[in-house]
Amino acid sequence: MNLFQMKSKPLGIERMSELLFEGFVCISWACIGNLADVSKEEVKVRLESYYKYEAQQFGNRLGSVSAFVHTKQARRLYRDR
């Protein structure tokens, strides 16, 4: 099972209308840009260049973002068949 907590107010900015009407999801790492079709290596590069996490924190964040991105990519590929 894949379970992600979704909120409409990342970084304290209400984005519900954008999410619903523009058809996208977002996560709280605002500086890493659009993650559609991005590899795990590219996620790593983006996180490293914008956020200065300690090693364990970085591993946890990379795992969270990568799991979200690649679960969404896999579901989109399955749905588009």
Rank of each mutant, 00 (worst) to 15 (best):
I13W: 07
G33A: 00
K52F: 13
G59L: 12
I27S: 10
K44E: 15
L35P: 11
Q5A: 08
H70D: 07
I32V: 08
S49A: 10
V43D: 11
S64A: 03
L11C: 12
E54L: 06
Q57A: 02
V38H: 11
V69R: 05
G12M: 05
Q73H: 15
I32D: 03
I32E: 05
V69Q: 11
K9V: 04
D37R: 01
S64N: 07
R46W: 06
G12R: 03
I13G: 04
L47N: 09
V38S: 14
Y78K: 13
V65S: 07
E42I: 00
R79C: 05
V65R: 12
R61W: 04
R75E: 14
S39Q: 04
Y53L: 05
F24C: 01
T71K: 11
F4S: 00
L3D: 12
L11W: 09
G12A: 01
M6I: 00
A67F: 11
R81I: 00
G12I: 02
E22A: 06
E41G: 07
Q57D: 15
V65N: 10
S17Y: 08
Y50G: 00
V65M: 11
Q57Y: 10
G23K: 06
N2V: 03
G59H: 08
S49W: 06
L20A: 05
S66H: 06
E22S: 12
S39G: 09
E48Y: 02
K9D: 10
C31L: 14
Q56F: 12
I13P: 04
F24A: 01
G59P: 09
F68W: 13
K40Y: 03
G33P: 09
R79E: 14
P10G: 00
A55E: 13
S8H: 07
V45P: 06
M6S: 03
R76H: 10
L20S: 00
N34Q: 07
S17E: 14
Y51N: 04
K44F: 08
Q56A: 11
R15P: 02
S66L: 07
L62Q: 10
V43R: 04
R76N: 11
E48C: 04
S49E: 15
A67D: 13
Q5C: 08
S28P: 15
K7M: 04
L35V: 05
I27K: 05
F24T: 07
T71H: 12
K52D: 15
C31M: 14
R79D: 11
E48S: 02
R79A: 00
M1R: 03
K40G: 07
V69F: 11
L11R: 14
A30K: 15
K7E: 12
I13T: 10
L47A: 00
A74P: 05
L35N: 10
S17M: 12
P10L: 08
K52I: 06
F24R: 01
E14Y: 12
E54W: 01
M1T: 11
S64K: 13
V45D: 14
G23M: 01
Q5T: 03
E41M: 01
Y78W: 09
A74L: 14
K44C: 13
T71N: 09
Y78L: 14
K7R: 09
C31I: 05
I13S: 07
K40R: 12
K44G: 06
R81D: 00
P10F: 07
L11M: 10
C26Y: 09
R15F: 08
K40D: 13
R75S: 03
I27V: 04
Q56S: 03
F68C: 01
L62W: 10
Y53W: 14
